[in-house]
Amino acid sequence: MTAPVPDKCSILLVDDMEENLIALEAVLGPLHQELVRASSGEEALKAMLRQDFAVVLLDVLMPGMDGFETAANIKRLDQTKDVPIILLTGTDADTDYAYRGYAIGAADFLTKPFDPWVLRTKVSVFLDLDRKNRQLATQAEQLRRLLAADRAPMEAAGPQERLAEIAEELAQIELHLRDTDATDAVALAERTARLRRAVNSLRVRHAA
């Protein structure tokens, strides 16, 4: 039985101005997720090393380490490189800001003042993807435990070829989990279900 994946995700809000953080919290409050504040790029990086986030909302214009530098640092770290970043900036932003943001690896770019519904919708997409990825990771871990528990009796019984096939499938799932989109998530879920049936079949044969 698959362990339940917590519905609540964490969202990191990064802005050096208190009023902007308050506004973001008001817009995202209806999503009922954990909202974490950071008032600088340095503070944001420390927060991301302490806990996992489903998405980061990052202001571009900040003193010291600005949004572009912060995003670049996030993408350099193995622990945080896959976290999606939405860059936020004012209406007086340079025309090349969006290009620079996407070049760094930002997932999206919004200009203030933004439509609250649009922001919530964009954030919700990343929240759903984060939940799918965590569910797939949980399923893959359960399959690894099943294989570890049954490895000795299965080896004694001799189903080496099928065991090798299952191990290869698990390796492919682990690779895809590092970089998957919503479409891939469905395919991976189906593959995981097939593997679970294969493992159960091997257990039944050994019991017989």
Rank of each mutant, 00 (worst) to 15 (best):
T2M: 09
T91P: 02
L177K: 04
I74N: 03
L49A: 15
D15L: 05
R145V: 07
P84T: 10
V55N: 02
K122V: 00
L35H: 07
A23S: 13
L45D: 04
P63Y: 00
I85V: 15
I22E: 13
D92S: 13
L202A: 04
N20V: 05
A107H: 06
T192M: 09
A93E: 03
I74F: 03
D108S: 07
L77W: 03
R196D: 06
L49W: 07
T95A: 13
V56C: 06
A148N: 12
L49V: 01
R37N: 10
F109E: 08
L127W: 04
K112M: 12
D82F: 07
E25K: 15
L147T: 03
D115Y: 07
H176K: 12
A148Y: 07
V5K: 02
S124E: 14
R120D: 04
R144K: 14
L170A: 03
I74Q: 01
I166F: 01
K132R: 15
T138M: 04
M17E: 10
D96K: 07
L87D: 02
A185R: 02
R37L: 05
V27L: 08
V199C: 15
V204L: 15
D92W: 09
W117S: 13
I11R: 09
L177Y: 05
Q142Y: 06
Q79Y: 10
L143D: 14
E165H: 13
T2L: 12
A189V: 00
L61K: 10
E168M: 08
E168A: 15
A198R: 08
D92Y: 12
W117F: 14
A93Y: 00
D130L: 02
L202S: 01
V199W: 01
T111A: 09
K8W: 04
V186C: 05
M62A: 00
V204M: 11
A107S: 14
Q142H: 10
H206N: 13
A156D: 13
D16A: 04
E174Q: 13
A3K: 12
V204T: 12
Q172T: 12
L110G: 00
K8M: 07
R144S: 12
R162Q: 14
P153Q: 12
A140L: 10
L61M: 14
P113N: 08
A164S: 14
M65K: 08
L175D: 10
F53P: 04
D16L: 05
T95P: 10
S39A: 11
D179T: 11
Y99R: 14
V125M: 11
L35A: 06
K75H: 12
V123G: 02
K81N: 05
A71M: 07
V14M: 06
D130S: 13
M65Y: 03
G41P: 05
Y102N: 05
R205D: 12
I173E: 06
I11L: 10
A140R: 07
S124Y: 04
R145A: 14
G29R: 11
K75M: 08
G158P: 11
R37Y: 10
P63A: 04
D66K: 00
N20A: 10
D179M: 08
T89P: 00
R151G: 01
N133D: 06
N20Q: 10
E25S: 12
T91D: 08
T91K: 15
A54T: 11
K75T: 01
L188S: 01
V199I: 14
Q33I: 08
N200L: 15
D15R: 01
D52K: 11
I173D: 08
H176F: 09
A23Q: 04
L127Y: 03
I74R: 03
K8C: 12
L24M: 14
A3T: 13
A182G: 04
G41R: 01
